[in-house]
Write a protein that binds this DNA or RNA. Structure first.
Length: 593
RNA sequence: GCCUCCGUAGUUCAAUGGAUAGAACAAGAGUUUCCUAAACUUUAGAUGCAAGUUCGAUUCUUGCCGGAGGCACCA
């Protein structure tokens, strides 16, 4: 049982005895004591004044005295206004510490195998390479999946590959028109970048044609609808839907190039998937469901043959599900994808969509439609909505060339890490290969931490000019702290994992223990809130306090053997917790740097 | 027009309705005969404005000001 839980139980018992009432757990507020006050844990007594019918200080004194009398874990207590601060006996902390030392995967919840969650992330379009926004998405989705696993759930990582549609045809058409048979091999370009080049080329040609039409006296809106090149792309889409052999063959080839490129990028990112879904397959399921829904009267048809869902009871506008010509829209595909997933995994108790907050409305509507179709599992669907990554000049727009490319950014950070490590690192005796690995570990650690330390719900700013900081509240700072702990362990690998519980601790040592103690609740809260940022905040606090300890306390020069052993064991435990916390963020912890 | 979200030091981020609003970067001042100075210590600096609810408000409510996103036969 954790110290906090012990205090909680003690407080509850004391209050119920003192005032002869039963109280709710929510009325007992216990938190860490703020650092300017004396004590370890604090009970806020304000909510209890109605029960005690006494002043704040008097109530606090009464409860404190009772708890001290009934429970043996307290050293003493003090009262400041309505705050009851407890000092916990050092031996209690050390006894906890001994338990942690001998627990594998300290902080992780037990695996309850009956709960399986699916986490969707990434889900790119196959017409252009991945960018900074995708990085936030991927790191977030991957990390949330790891955090949910640490909370004892089974997790299936998935994505929906948006491999069909007009945007794909645009790249294909431009390649046919301007490509002269260029391939990744012939051009030396990564497949996804090659396709992205033709997506941009399409847009250029399209804009040029529009400009010509306007110059010849056409209205702007009219001109945008009248270009030959767009008509050709639409024709290509129709051929694709009709399974025209030539179009399908080209589509397969070009998508193949993109997948090859993506594979490299995902590998560099360190993310992976357990199950893939392709829009080219799921949209057909969606169409079928919509047609069935129409027969059952869940949806309705307009005069022009288009199919709609009435959502007035949810106060949404009606939603189009099939166009007049029978083709599907985004929503149709999403219905099909969800359905297919629950068909493939009937035991899913939740489906988490990691998608940007610009689609908040889309997902509300999707879930409402699924409910209307009568699927009970719809209530387990959750939109993990995250904020956009913004640049100083505003939002990234791929067609305006203001995107930060994922491959470029990862490479540039690895390079920054290389410069920093060559200058400051302890890497002389490493092989070239080990060095390369380390640079990547540090660079990616910096990038991932940067994107994950911010509350996912909030938008965040990225300034390419300033690049990503490697000092301060950063991934490499935490990684460095880990390397320090490993250096200690390597000096004395055979230390005892049983600590004498009667030793006297320095305040900073107790502080480190208190932070370690919070790891289990950090994992729990991060899981409940789908927030890797909580893990990042936690591990930063831990690293900071350990560094402070490291600076002010000598380990190997300590003459008291019991204390020395404790300090080595503390380093060991801090190292373990840092390593595990970082792994929840998808970040590697280097042995030395 | 309607709806949703966001405004915290110069900048980027924290703070289950709780104590004197925390960090980092940038700025200033220090710490290497000692286990990794990618570290540590330290100074200065902030809740958009106005009301309300509360013992207590960055947090809840309302209004205003400022910013972002959404409401498509786009994905």
């Amino acid at each position: 049982m954790s110290v906090e839980k012990k205090v909680f139980d003690s407080a509850k018992q004391a209050i119920e005895k003192l005032y002869s009432v039963e109280i709710l757990d929510s009325q007992i507020q216990i938190g860490k004591t703020k650092k300017d006050f004396e004590g370890d844990l604090t009970l806020v007594v304000f909510p209890l004044l109605r029960i005690s019918k006494k002043g704040a200080e008097q109530t606090a004194e009464e409860i404190g005295a009772k708890m001290l009398e009934d429970t043996s874990i307290f050293e003493n207590f003090n009262v400041v206004k309505g705050f009851l601060n407890f000092s916990i006996k050092t031996s209690v902390w050390l006894s906890q510490f001994n338990k942690w030392l001998n627990t594998s995967k300290f902080g992780y919840a037990k695996n309850d195998t009956d709960k399986t969650l699916m986490v969707e992330y990434s889900s790119p379009n196959t017409n252009k390479p991945l960018h900074l926004g995708h990085l936030r998405n991927n790191f977030l989705g991957y990390s949330v999946a790891e955090i949910l696993k640490a909370n004892g759930h089974n997790v299936i990582k998935t994505q929906i590959v948006n491999d069909r549609g007009i945007h794909i045809c645009k790249s294909m058409l431009a390649w046919k028109m301007f490509g002269n048979g260029e391939t990744p091999q012939s051009s030396g370009l990564k497949g996804d970048h090659l396709i992205g080049k033709y997506y941009v080329a399409f847009d250029k040609a399209f804009k040029k044609e529009v400009a010509n039409l306007i110059a010849n006296g056409m209205e702007a809106k009219e001109a945008e609808k009248s270009t030959k090149i767009l008509a050709q792309a639409q024709e290509m889409l129709q051929k694709w839907e009709a399974e025209d052999e030539e179009v399908r063959a080209l589509w397969k080839t070009m998508n193949g190039w993109v997948y090859e490129g993506f594979e490299t990028t995902y590998k560099n990112m360190g993310v992976d998937f357990d199950a893939l879904y392709y829009e080219s397959e799921t949209y057909l399921v969606g169409k079928k469901v919509v047609e069935e829904g129409l027969e059952k009267g869940v949806f309705y048809k307009k005069e022009d043959n288009s199919v709609w869902c009435d959502l007035s009871h949810e106060k949404f506008d009606d939603k189009l599900l099939l166009r007049g010509d029978g083709t599907s829209v985004y929503m149709t595909q999403d219905i099909g994808t969800a359905l297919l997933r629950y068909k493939d995994y009937p035991n899913l108790s939740g489906l988490i969509y990691t998608v940007g907050n610009e689609q908040n409305h889309h997902f509300k509507v999707l879930f409402a439609i699924l409910k209307k179709l009568g699927y009970d599992w719809a209530s387990g669907c959750y939109h993990l909505s995250y904020g956009m990554v913004e640049l100083p000049e505003g939002k990234m727009k791929s067609r305006e060339g203001t995107v930060v490319d994922a491959d470029d950014l990862m490479e540039s950070l690895t390079n920054d890490a290389k410069n920093a490590a060559t200058e400051r690192g302890r890497i002389e005796e490493m092989s070239t290969q080990e060095k390369e690995e380390l640079f990547r570990t540090i660079g990616m650690g910096g990038l991932k931490y940067f994107l994950l330390k911010v509350d996912p719900k909030k938008k965040m700013m990225f300034n390419p000019q300033e690049s990503i900081e490697l000092n301060g509240n950063t991934g490499p700072f935490v990684q460095y702290t880990y390397a320090r702990t490993q250096s200690i362990i390597n000096t004395e690998p055979n230390f005892s994992k049983t600590i004498n519980e009667t030793i006297i601790l320095e305040p900073i040592e107790k502080e480190v223990l208190k932070i370690i103690a919070e790891f289990p609740s950090a994992i729990k809260e991060a899981g409940e809130n789908y927030s890797p940022a909580l893990i990042a905040n936690f591990v930063y606090e831990l690293a900071k306090s350990y560094n402070s300890f490291y600076q002010s306390v000598s380990i190997f020069k300590e003459e008291d053997k019991a204390k020395k052993t404790f300090r080595i064991a503390l380093s060991y435990q801090v190292g373990n917790v840092i390593k595990n916390a970082l792994s929840l963020l998808g970040i590697k912890a280097p042995q030395q740097m």
